[in-house]
Design a binder for these strands. Structure first.
Lengths: 151, 151
DNA sequence: CTTGATGCAAATTATTTGCATTGTC
DNA sequence: GACAATGCAAATAATTTGCATCAAG
């Protein structure tokens, strides 16, 4: 069971790329910051301990992490890309609350099974998938904002 | 059964917005061009008959169409947003081929049922969802590019 | 005739690239 | 020591906004 960091290092070696101080720092920070983070956000985290690292390097390293299979790029409704560590323990999907913006994760094996079946019916080979449910989360449902103003 | 165009007009009136020549032209073109189109692409189409309409207006109108519920914004792996007419006849999802870039549509009621169940378990109210399968389509599977070069 | 809509150019945002310098292998 | 990696600034790409002018209600 290779840790994300090991997988990344192995990928670099395999590709004849170099293991640099900044790549290691970025990868480590990324892997320890569970759940979706933006390039900008990751750069902020990394900068705390390592102010000399540039945003550009974070972008480049995130791309490498994705290629290594350690990071997954996600793009929710927003304008900027999020990355998240590729969960060692299986794939998960997201529910995004349109009110508070919170993102909830879930896993459902049956849905994945059906996806496989649909793909098979079309002769399509699935490599990856994204399922996002947009709506209102439990917390925000309680609030009932406005509830249709009466004239 | 209101056509997309009628729905849009109604939305404009309801919001106290104006029905302009360009909005009508853009909406009509959009609705007749089935399946995902980018702002740029739609502008190209519209320009053919109506060269004076600016790209900016297309962007603004697409946003209105989305608010009116007539258009759905989608964002596949790519960098730019696609819009597609909100299918009058039910929701559909997408399979995107990573090789040739083609996008296939499919519909699966069982998956949607499971989504509802998962959401319910979390007290989440679904308003919309996106399911995208990324992989290799039938056509591209036949080609086998490279098939792991032997050293 | 009032107020929103358009179109242009300029601004923003997210991301990428050119290039001189630096650090790994 | 070679050659990839970094960081800066500048370049792109997609989209948005300010503003003077125009047109729908």
């Amino acid at each position: 069971m290779a840790s994300g960091e090991e997988t990344f290092q192995a990928y670099l070696r395999r590709q004849g790329l170099k293991t640099t101080r900044q790549r290691t720092a970025i990868a480590r920070e990324f892997l320890s910051s569970h759940r979706h983070i933006t390039a900008e956000g990751l750069h902020r985290s990394v900068s705390r301990k390592n102010p000399a690292i540039g945003l550009v390097t974070v972008y480049r390293t995130l791309k490498l992490l994705a290629q290594a299979g350690v990071a997954k790029e996600r793009r929710f409704g927003a304008n900027e890309s999020c990355y998240e560590p590729a969960a060692a323990g299986g794939h998960h999907d997201h529910m995004i609350c349109k009110i508070c913006g919170k993102i909830f994760e879930f896993e459902n094996v049956k849905i994945e099974g059906l996806q496989d079946r649909v793909a098979a019916e079309h002769g399509f080979l699935i490599q990856d998938h994204k399922l996002e449910l947009y709506g209102v989360c439990r917390g925000c449902r309680k609030v009932k904002p406005g509830a249709r103003r009466r004239k």
